[in-house]
Computed example of a mutant assay.
Amino acid sequence: MTQKTALITGASRGLGAAMAEALAPTHHIIAVGRTVGALEELDDRIKAKGGSATLAPMDITTPEAMQTLCRGIHDRWGALDLWLHTAVHAAPLTPSDHIDGKDLEKSITANITATATLINYVAPLLGEAGRAVFFEDPVVGQKFYGSYGATKGAQIAIARSWQAETARIGPRVDILTPEPMATATRARFFPGEDRATLTDIHAEAARLLAILQK
């Protein structure tokens, strides 16, 4: 297969799904997510646009599953052109002195440990010429975002370290900041927000991809 490949972790909904659809005309999409039905719906939308996808319904917090996935990518395609990491655990908003231990542990596992593990597995597939993309969130450090903010910030800190380490040797690592979008994650954070004022996820996916092409 000569078509480029794009691995998208967190592809079942939101920005990940929108990025998958936007990339489908030029890339074979390897879509990772926990919700089988949502992945199948994404596959239908990609096929309707003439694209193709490989669905990988699995949890990124399971190292063995991620190892098997990356080995499968190597065996089938030999390498990977692009990795977009949109998967995140959004813990409920709460005052810092009321952070739930289980929510914090889940946030650490999904947002920090899984990211570091994936970098370890995906980096050899990207090689020198591939590209990895992470997504920053401006709410980090704001009130009530203790569990999410701390672990999302740590995730981006890992990405920035990798970015600095690979600046001369590759792969290229990009960190983008999306505009506020009408996603399920944001709806959990802001349940009464007027969603009509938010950016459409497909428009935002197109904007972010345009930045990557510069």
Rank of each mutant, 00 (worst) to 15 (best):
M1A: 14
T2Q: 12
Q3D: 11
K4R: 15
T5G: 08
T5E: 11
A6H: 01
A6N: 04
L7W: 01
I8R: 03
T9F: 02
A11I: 06
R13V: 11
R13Y: 10
G14L: 11
A20I: 03
E21N: 09
E21M: 14
A22V: 05
I29W: 03
A31L: 07
R34S: 04
V36I: 15
L39M: 05
E40N: 13
R45K: 15
I46T: 01
G51S: 04
G51L: 06
S52H: 10
T54Q: 13
T54G: 03
L55E: 09
M58W: 03
M58N: 05
I60C: 11
I60W: 07
T62R: 14
P63S: 10
E64H: 12
E64D: 15
M66E: 08
L69Y: 01
C70M: 01
I73P: 07
D75G: 03
D75C: 00
R76D: 14
G78S: 01
A79S: 15
L80G: 01
W83H: 12
H85D: 09
H85R: 09
A87V: 02
H89L: 02
H89G: 00
A91F: 06
P92A: 09
L93G: 02
P95F: 08
D97Q: 13
D97V: 10
H98R: 15
H98C: 11
D103I: 02
L104P: 00
E105C: 06
S107R: 07
S107P: 06
I108C: 08
N111W: 04
I112V: 15
T113Q: 10
A114E: 07
N120K: 14
A123K: 12
G127N: 05
E128C: 06
E128S: 14
G130W: 07
G130H: 08
E136A: 13
E136W: 10
P138M: 02
V139A: 11
G141Q: 09
K143F: 12
G146C: 09
G146A: 15
G149E: 02
G149K: 05
G149I: 01
T151K: 03
G153F: 06
A154Q: 03
Q155N: 12
I156Q: 08
A157Y: 03
A159S: 02
A159T: 00
R160G: 00
Q163E: 10
Q163P: 01
Q163K: 11
A164Y: 06
E165I: 00
A167W: 04
A167V: 10
I169H: 12
I169W: 05
I169E: 13
P171K: 00
R172S: 13
R172C: 06
L176S: 08
T177S: 12
T177R: 11
T177N: 11
E179N: 13
M181D: 08
M181E: 12
R186W: 08
R188C: 06
F189K: 01
F190Q: 10
P191A: 05
P191M: 03
G192T: 10
E193M: 13
E193I: 11
R195V: 15
A196D: 14
A196C: 05
H202R: 15
A203V: 13
E204Q: 13
A205P: 01
L208C: 01
L208R: 02
L209Y: 05
L209Q: 10
Q213L: 08
Q213V: 02
Q213H: 14
K214L: 08
